[in-house]
């Protein structure tokens, strides 16, 4: 269907699609939406590196590719290193990297590939200061392998290797704050984003392009399959994660924190609203929920304090 030019102008996101139909994501996949936005933001002039993760499959088997931009599939733990090498080669060849009209080098890795096995290569990439963007799409477990816990899995979640059962064995560790580890590298730009807030995400992708040096975005991307949630609740879950302050939106830019909550004056909704839509939390007791709620509010308070002191 032809979209009239005056309608296109009013769209809040670029009209062009570079992430094509025919990709093999599950119904309701948050990561696939994320990819769509990233490719909308950078168009064809981006080089992607994707390690072992859902997106390996989503992009399509040989000889297909759902990407309108070049894509290098790489080993699980290597995203940070591979994008470093791509960036170095582009510079050696005299290409403009990052900035307006520059080539965007994008590492796109899951939470397991980032928070766990890829943490070392990520740290190396950040510390060395390469002009590239690393996006961790966070679906809170090893979804491609079949829903095993990662260090980004939240307290109380069922996964196949932290199953709920008669002995009540669940994930007992809180979600690792990867973004804080990233910020500890004092890189120029780091942010959290959510597929429920595409305009905010798009703005952050643009900033990641403009600001020289390494950038990092942690993108909250619900996985209905792994979260045991209805496939039409993806956006709602992502929105609730923000509204409950379970996954607050913020930016860290040249040492300054800025919170980007959609309704800054509202108090966070109770965490239970986020939990109750998902089967993965069904084994949690009232006490478990209290423990998680307390953690969420404590972390939220810490973030607000940081924004207040280093705003």
């Amino acid at each position: 269907m032809e979209i009239p030019e005056n309608v296109k102008k009013r769209l809040s996101l670029p009209f062009e699609e570079h992430f094509y139909a025919g990709h093999t994501a599950c119904q309701g996949c948050g990561a696939a939406l994320g990819l769509r936005y990233v490719l909308k933001a950078y168009g064809k002039k981006a080089i992607f590196a994707i390690p072992a993760c859902c997106s390996t499959i989503i992009a399509g088997p040989w000889p297909y590719s759902a990407f309108g931009a070049p894509l290098f599939h790489t080993a699980f733990e290597t995203t940070g290193a591979v994008i470093s090498g791509i960036e170095a080669a582009l510079k050696a060849k005299g290409y403009k990297v990052k900035g307006k009209d520059g080539i965007m080098v994008v590492g796109w890795a899951g939470d397991g590939g980032t928070a766990d096995i890829g943490l070392q290569a990520l740290s190396g990439f950040l510390e060395r200061g390469h002009d590239a963007l690393y996006i961790m799409y966070d679906n809170e477990a090893y979804m491609n392998t079949g829903i095993q816990r990662s260090s980004s899995t939240p307290y109380g979640a069922w996964t196949t290797n932290t199953p709920g059962g008669k002995k009540h064995f669940l994930e007992r560790r809180h979600k690792k704050k990867v973004i804080d580890i990233v910020i500890a590298h004092k890189i120029p730009y780091a942010a959290t984003a959510s597929i429920a807030f595409p305009e905010d995400f798009m703005r952050k992708l643009r900033k990641a392009q403009e600001i020289p040096g390494p950038s990092f975005i942690q993108l909250f991307a619900p996985c209905p399959t792994g979260w045991r949630a209805p496939t039409d609740k993806t956006i709602e879950l992502a929105r609730l994660a923000v509204q409950t302050a379970y996954f607050p939106l913020f930016e860290y830019e040249n040492g300054k924190y800025k919170i980007n909550m959609p309704s800054p004056k509202k108090e966070p909704k109770p965490i239970e609203e986020f939990l109750k839509l998902q089967g993965r939390f069904k084994y949690m007791t009232k006490e478990d929920i209290e423990i998680l709620q307390e953690w969420v509010l404590r972390e939220w308070k810490e973030l607000k304090k940081k924004a207040e002191v280093f705003g």
């Binding site: 080089i47 790489t74 290597t78 290193a81 591979v82 090498g85 791509i86 170095a88 080669a89 060849k93």
Partner: peptide, 10 residues
């Protein structure tokens, strides 16, 4: 891994 990225970039 970095050599691989660089070599794939030409």
């Amino acid at each position: 891994a970095a050599c691989i990225g660089a070599s794939a970039t030409g």
